[in-house]
Design a protein around this nucleic acid. Sequence first.
DNA 1: CGCCTATTTGATAGCCGTCAACCGGAGTGG
DNA 2: CCACTCCGGTTGACGGCTATCAAATAGGCG
Lengths: 244, 244
Amino acid sequence: MNTASPLEPLVRKLNRHVALGTADCDAIRSLRHSVRDLPASAYLLREDDKPGDCAVLLHGIVFRQKMSRNGARQIVALQFPGDPLDLQHLFLDCADHSVQALTDIRVAMVPRIILRDIAAAYPAIARAFAIHSEVDASIAREWLLNTGRRSARERLAHLLCEVAARLDRQQQVSNEGYELPMTQEQLGDALSLTSVHVNRTIRSLEQEGLISRHRRKIFFRDWASMREVAGFRDSYLHLGQQAA
Amino acid sequence: MNTASPLEPLVRKLNRHVALGTADCDAIRSLRHSVRDLPASAYLLREDDKPGDCAVLLHGIVFRQKMSRNGARQIVALQFPGDPLDLQHLFLDCADHSVQALTDIRVAMVPRIILRDIAAAYPAIARAFAIHSEVDASIAREWLLNTGRRSARERLAHLLCEVAARLDRQQQVSNEGYELPMTQEQLGDALSLTSVHVNRTIRSLEQEGLISRHRRKIFFRDWASMREVAGFRDSYLHLGQQAA
DNA sequence: CGCCTATTTGATAGCCGTCAACCGGAGTGG
DNA sequence: CCACTCCGGTTGACGGCTATCAAATAGGCG
């Protein structure tokens, strides 16, 4: 078994929801690809461009964004290691949003056709891709609820809970804290707030003892209260499920 | 060729983006299903429930919604005739949102397994499903931008443009008007506004001569200005594309 | 140490929500 | 045929959450 493949994070992520066989896993590990390192704020894809190769995130954080005509930016999704970044455009020939590195990242570039082919050849992998897309869509719907119907305070708390829950699965949340390398302006763009208001809000959470911060690391001092403030229920992340 | 199948709207919709062969089309038309009529506001699926059979919308309009803990509702998607309504949950065993009839509707219920099987057996159909899901996800991202970064006026205009564009494809937009059978409260829930503010906003669009209304029918008096006000670009609907 | 970016803080303004009342049309029943 | 009812639409007054503008502080990196 070839566990040394750079694509191992993808295998782990896909295995989260579907029980892939060894043949499936090995097929993924053997995908033709090239590893590439990119600096923070590099673009992987720009809106209106034609999607090319598909990137799989191996290390770092990536965000998806759209711009309104008057220049306001909206971050519409965050992606973490193991996430395939181009399932959204696998069969479309025009990108409807941009994909950009939040931190320095490492990705594996896989030719589009290869990804399509492997899905066609391995039904379990096709299903894993489908589930991944479904969960991504579910998160987008929750974000819609978040920006549309929750106050700034709830919104911020909810995002912090979501990131913790998603990172937790990857053992990247140590005890009670994790690093969220987003500027307050980026947080604002994800939450549809201004950076000024993000600052006031995060500060109020801190002063009430719900979280504490050191550099860009965030510590949950009172996890229960945070979930309560956010109204956070993790069912939309579909974490528990092992195949359907 | 069995063009009399009730599932013809689904064939037409899937054919929009992929060139399906006759065998594919006939396979869809022959799907085991039962047609059912439901009254407005009937639930097709409730959040937290286990998804059962998959519904295909044949006639009428359906919306997807989520509720925040304090009872605020957010409509996260609209679906029109031909849309499969359960691709979002095809491989998930817990619904993350509710699906409800906006108008009286007619649906075709297809067993989940049958839908999965046909996708596995006919690659072109699997691709059509994937594309449909990708477009749905793209629309969700645009809604996120819409509620997050646009003013009430822009938001409303954008929704009106989107519905017109999506209905137009089905020749349900006569000349310059179409019926949008949503109450202002429902519009508010889709736009993250209150019904009061929807009223003021729609009224101002009307007084400026951009639209006119008669009952629930909306007429575009000045299509160009509407698009301009909304900052509407239809590329996110991926309408033009014929296969990838 | 100096520059640059990110964070923090204060004052002010405005969009939209909230509350409350009234209107108007469609269906119902007398 | 008309009164009643009910739901949705309309309107006004007021308030609050968040944006905007501006400036000072802090932190990271050369």
